[in-house]
Design a protein around this nucleic acid. Structure first.
Lengths: 395, 395
DNA sequence: TGAATTCATCCAATCATTGGAGTAATTCCC
DNA sequence: GGGAATTACTCCAATGATTGGATGAATTCA
């Protein structure tokens, strides 16, 4: 660890190449000369680094730009669509989605696979990826890396799966290694699903750019993905964000975990359905769309039940805000289907109970990113790994 | 921000010089040859960097070592005691302590100042420092930096004081600037007191080294200092760790903040005194030493009251553990005077309510660092700033 | 006493960035 | 329309930092 900070000369070039890549991504299309100014590198250096990026199929020249004054027009550089690929899987208890992105984050290939036998998960992931590459008529050395998004407890330092309550037990913990041996030399990363949700919202989400963000996944259970200082944060044992069993009511109802007044026991979807049932408003379907309809129709008893849930959620959010102090909290999961009425309830309650004046600067919203948050976040993780993004190091 | 990652050639040397400094600090006394192996730098480079460090009075040759086998004996390098200084203040509502450390973290000068007129705080800090340097007969260019530890809300990005409920209002927010103009060119940093407590425990604390740690200051109020991934964490608005008003009991007693069942309202010292009073066990003195005595004497009613407090504390700690997932939680503040009986109560309760198996790996203890945690942490912050430690960058 | 070993330094070479000269392309202005 | 000015990019020699190999110094072992 202590020798991490040592800079070996060959790293300098790589580091600057990555910096130039990030600058192109952030300001595309952009000229060499502008890159030199932004990076504070000499034009010579930028030219040579750009030449490398072009040779690696990451960047291309894309025409000429305009100058506000006189002088030669700049050659604009942009990322090369379809030049290299970022693979990301979104795995759940039923199967997985595989997305192949290019560095522009356009989906170049998509496949959804229902898994019957999870003991073959590793092979299925590898085969799917191979199929997708074959369909694109691209060589696998065009792959920059793979990220597997998982609803599981992970040891990120050793990149191993510890356990999961969502995946069938026969999935085991070796499937990332199966993928690794199928693609030797290509980084295969694993990351927690909630964390990827949060990361995708941070990187691709609307609103002002944030460095600290919490994604709250409210469904049957409640889990959180946490970003602090622009980095994915998973805690020392990989279980940061396991907020479901945070105590919000010492004398509340008993939870399956043995404690009382757990956040997910009182704020999750089952608790809402219980509140609806108590009021004689049972929604037969599992989904909450019917509840949303009742809500919009103005049913006062349904409103009451949702308002109670909003209060619980606000209390839990307030707890995590007092601890993590993010700029943005994103609410996702099944509960988000309740839409505006729920969100407004949470916001109003938060304004009442939160610490002033910080609470007024907090942004609480639903997801604003189109597409699959897990694979988007996963692709960004792969990009970070390849080009030294904020969450990279370690390697 | 994006041009941060660019490596300019002159940074390479500085970065490696810093790496060598850290290695000397970590493995002292140590030879050039061993440094080269550890840093994976060539012997030549190490020699030249060490020569610079010696010229800067940071390092000195300190004799010869032994080789397990044959061969020339190595010249051992060590930090130079009293060569350069790290200044750190611990400011509270009554005055401040000033400590001058050397890079070995030996206190070279200590002064305690009671402040009558806080509007002159900046000048008092500067004068105290000048007096200390004069007494040491050292030039102020030997100062590597200053850190002011404050019980206040801070904007660390702009290094400004936002507000404080502990400091008298006449202290204002400009006193760091007064110090800055008194010592031009010397970095004057500010940092939150709780965060420094946590940082000092992380860096100097006993037990296995941790990368994620929470320091819980339990007194009249409850505040937390948080370290994640070895970095001081203060959140986006500087208020991370304001756990005092975390809800632990939605139907609990009303708090001054307007909510019910706040952590500090139920787990702080006043709540304990209330519990004692309810049982006819009033400790007249403010301090908890008398309570500790009753506890040790085996008074069952006092034990009961302390056990209740331990349960509340465990619930709050469990909440923050589920969110931040640290390896270590350190309990400090007035409440720590209750010693073992309280700690055991908290641990036992945590084992019952915490998520398995993670909770069994969590270490909960009192402070294990002798000396002033705030100035120790502050001195480390100054060192980080000067030599690119984990929490440094930005500059 | 000599061979082997380890530590540290000197020196020429290497790698990456830099500054300046040189070329290319475009606008301004006469 | 053509020259001056301006901006973009590239070639080339120079600079700064690290490196590898040779050299010298100090020590142990046989």
């Amino acid at each position: 660890m202590s020798d991490r900070s040592v800079v070996h000369l060959q790293n300098v070039k790589e580091s600057n190449r990555n910096a130039v890549f990030h600058l192109i991504r952030a300001h595309r299309p952009v000229s060499r000369s502008e890159l030199a100014k932004r990076a504070r590198l000499s034009p010579t250096t930028v030219s040579s680094l750009v030449a490398e990026l072009i040779a690696e199929r990451l960047v291309r020249e894309t025409g000429v730009g305009v100058t506000s004054t006189s002088g030669r027009k700049p050659i604009l550089l942009d990322l090369q669509p379809g030049g290299r690929y970022l693979a990301a899987f979104d795995v759940d208890g039923h199967g997985f989605v595989s997305h192949l992105y290019d560095p522009l984050f356009d989906v170049r290939s998509e496949e959804t696979v229902a898994v019957a036998d999870f003991s073959a998960l590793g092979r299925l992931l590898a085969d799917t990826l191979a199929r997708q590459f074959a369909a694109l008529d691209a060589a696998p050395d065009r792959l920059l890396g793979v990220c597997i998004g998982l609803p599981a407890l992970l040891d990120l330092e050793h990149q191993t799966v510890l356990s999961s309550t969502v995946l069938p037990p026969e999935a085991g913990v070796d499937f990332p290694d199966t993928l690794r041996s199928a693609y030797p030399g290509i980084p295969v990363l694993i990351e927690n699903e909630s964390t990827l949700n949060a990361y995708a919202e941070l990187v691709f989400g609307a609103g002002r750019p944030a460095r600290d963000l919490v994604f709250l996944d409210v469904g049957t259970g409640i889990g959180a993905g946490i970003i602090t200082g622009g980095r994915r944060f998973t805690g020392s044992f990989g279980k940061a964000g396991e907020v479901g069993h945070m105590t919000v009511d010492l004398h509340g109802p008993e939870c399956a975990c043995g404690n009382r007044g757990c956040f997910e026991g009182m704020g999750g979807v089952p608790a809402l359905q219980r509140r609806l049932a108590e009021r004689g408003r049972v929604s037969a379907r599992n989904g909450l769309d019917a509840v949303r309809a009742d809500l919009d129709a103005g049913d006062p008893l349904v409103r009451e039940a949702v308002a109670e849930t909003a209060e619980i959620l606000a209390a839990g959010i307030n707890n995590l805000v007092n601890l993590v102090d993010p700029q943005v909290v994103v609410i996702g999961g099944e509960m988000a289907r309740l839409g505006g009425p729920l969100l407004e309830g949470v916001r109003a309650r938060l304004r009442r109970i939160g610490l002033k004046p910080g609470i007024d600067r907090l942004e609480v919203r639903f997801s604003s990113v189109p597409g699959n948050l897990v694979t988007l976040g996963g692709a960004q993780v792969v990009l970070d790994r390849a080009f030294g993004g904020p969450g990279a190091p370690l390697g």
